[in-house]
Design a protein around this nucleic acid. Structure first.
Length: 354
DNA sequence: TTCCAGCAGC
DNA sequence: GCTGCTGGAA
C-alpha cells in the first residue's frame, strides 16, 4: 500500500474526509431498492447476494424486475437450491452471462448443504463460493453484515478517480483505487459508506455530465478543480472487435415444429436454447447442407464481449421421419417458444423470421 | 450504427 | 490475460 501511495502520499485526503461528507448525504438521498434494507432494518443476506450477482453484469433498472421475479419464485436460498437449472436459466434469460446463473445455483446449493442455509459473514469464506469474487465478497460482507471491508465497483472507481484526478488509466489504476477506497473506509457503517459511493456514482458523479453542483464531495474534488471531471477515469485504448459471419438454420417440419438445440453448458450461450448455428463455438462442425434451404433477406446483428456477429438465416423444411436428431436437438412447437430459455440472439432471429 | 459499462472463472 | 452478453446511451 505504501508503494501504491508513494507519489500520491502528500496529496492524500484525511482518511475520514470523504465519509464525513458522504454519509449525511446518503442518509438524506439514498435510493430505495428492493434488496436494500430500510434504515434501521437488518439486510437480508440472500437478497444482497442475489442482487450483487445480477448487478455484476448490468444496471439497476434492468435488474429490478429479474430480482423481484427470483424472490417471488424462490423466496429463500434453500428454495433456490432446490430449483432446477433449467428453471433458473429460464428466469435468467435475457440477463446474459449464463455461466453466472449456473454459479448462482451451485452457490445456493453450497449455502444450503455446507452452511445450513446461513450465509457466511466473513469475506474470506464468501470468496470461496462459486460466482463470488473479490468485489462481491467485499460487497456482501459490508452491506449484509456491516463488516469493515471495501468493495470497489465501477461507480466507486469513477468517483475516486475524479476526487483524486488519477492520471493512471484503468484498468491499471485498480490497485491504487482499491487502496484509496480502503484508506477512506470508516470503521462503522462500512456498508453504508460503500453504498453511498455507489449511489453518488449513479446519481451525481455520472459518467457523462456529472452534477457537480449537487455533489457532497465537490469541495475537495481535484478533477472538478481542474475543470474536467468528465474526462475521468482515464482508460486504456480498447482494441477493435472482429466481425464473424455465420449461418443459422431455421428448420421446420410440416406441422409448425421448429428444430431447436440446447447448447453445451460451457462456453458461449451455455445451456440456452437456439436454432443451430454451426461454428458459433470453435471446433463445431457443420452437419447441415445448404441445399434445399433459402436464405432470408438481411442479417441479424449481435455483439458479444469480444466480437460482432452477423447471422444469415437459412430457412428449410424437413420431414421429421427422415431427419436424424443429434443428441442435444429436439422438435418444439413454434407456438410454445416462450417456455424455453432463449438468449437475446435467438429472440432477434425469431423476430427476423416471423 | 457504434460505444460502453460491468466482474468472475479458467 | 482471455472469455462471457445485453440494454441503453451517444
Amino acid at each position: 500500500m505504501t508503494t501504491i501511495f508513494s507519489d500520491l502520499k502528500k496529496d492524500l485526503l484525511d482518511p475520514d474526509t470523504i465519509q464525513k461528507h458522504l454519509l449525511p448525504w446518503y442518509d438524506a438521498n439514498q435510493r430505495t431498492l428492493p434488496w436494500r434494507a430500510l434504515p434501521g432494518r437488518e439486510p437480508n443476506p440472500y437478497h444482497v447476494w442475489l442482487s450483487e450477482i445480477m448487478l455484476q453484469q448490468t444496471t439497476v433498472p434492468t435488474v429490478i424486475p429479474y430480482f423481484l421475479n427470483f424472490i417471488r419464485l424462490w423466496p429463500t436460498v434453500q428454495d433456490l437450491s432446490h430449483a432446477s437449472l433449467d428453471d433458473i436459466l429460464h428466469a435468467w434469460q435475457g440477463l446474459g452471462y449464463y455461466a453466472r446463473a449456473r454459479n448462482l445455483f451451485k452457490c445456493a446449493q453450497e449455502i444450503t448443504t455446507r452452511y445450513e442455509g446461513i450465509f457466511p459473514d466473513m469475506e474470506s469464506t464468501l470468496l470461496t463460493l462459486p460466482g463470488i469474487g473479490p468485489y462481491t465478497a467485499a460487497a456482501i460482507a459490508a452491506i449484509a453484515f456491516g463488516k469493515n471491508t471495501s468493495p470497489v465497483d465501477g461507480n466507486i472507481e469513477r468517483v475516486l478517480s475524479r476526487v483524486y484526478a488519477i492520471k493512471v488509466p484503468l484498468p491499471g489504476s485498480k490497485p491504487l483505487l482499491q487502496a484509496l477506497a480502503r484508506h477512506h473506509t470508516p470503521l462503522h457503517r462500512a456498508g453504508d459508506y460503500a453504498q453511498a459511493l455507489m449511489d453518488l456514482g449513479s446519481r451525481i458523479c455520472t459518467p457523462k455530465k456529472p452534477i457537480c453542483i449537487s455533489c457532497p464531495l465537490r469541495r475537495f474534488c481535484r478533477a472538478l478543480e481542474k475543470g474536467d471531471p468528465e474526462n475521468y477515469p482515464l482508460r486504456e485504448a480498447s482494441s477493435l472487435k472482429p466481425t464473424r459471419f455465420l449461418d443459422a438454420f431455421w428448420i421446420e417440419d410440416g406441422s409448425n415444429f421448429l428444430l431447436l438445440e440446447k447448447r453445451p453448458l460451457s462456453g458461449l450461450l451455455g445451456g440456452l436454447v437456439m436454432v443451430p448455428i454451426p461454428l458459433l463455438n470453435k471446433n463445431e462442425t457443420n452437419p447441415f447442407f445448404k441445399e434445399g434451404s433459402s436464405p432470408l433477406k438481411g442479417l441479424v446483428s449481435h455483439t458479444f464481449t469480444h466480437f460482432h456477429l452477423k447471422v444469415r438465416v437459412l430457412k428449410a423444411r424437413a420431414a421429421r421421419g427422415n431427419f436424424s436428431l443429434l443428441e442435444n436437438q429436439f422438435w418444439h412447437p413454434l407456438s410454445d417458444l416462450s417456455d424455453q430459455a432463449l438468449p437475446t440472439l435467438m429472440k432477434k432471429i425469431v423476430r427476423h423470421v416471423t
